[in-house]
Amino acid sequence: MADTPEQILKDMKKYWLIGWILLGCTVLTVVVAWVTPSITIGLGIATVKAGLVAVIFMHLSDEKSLIYKVLIYTVFFAIGLMFLTLLALYDPIIAPSSRSY
């Protein structure tokens, strides 16, 4: 990232733009949830937003490789953690009787 004043002012414009996009996405999430409560869409928009924050605000678009390595390593295990459910619930020795309506 260049540190000349011109570059900084340009960056500032970019950050405001991203800020507005994020606000827009938030409104979108609520509207979508109101129209059709879909988990996939909700989480999809959230992931996009989180990605924008991480990439632009946290300057991950322009970071040293060491930090990428640390983060990839971390995210791998964080995702692994999510599989707890899968391990515990979806591979039982005896299938639980399911109840339907």
Binding site: L87, D91, P92
Partner: peptide, 21 residues
Amino acid sequence: GFLAFIVWAHHMYLTGMGNVV
């Protein structure tokens, strides 16, 4: 250091986990 994170459930064989896990 990598593998240490993905072996934990061998402490839990008796909790009724199925064959796959």
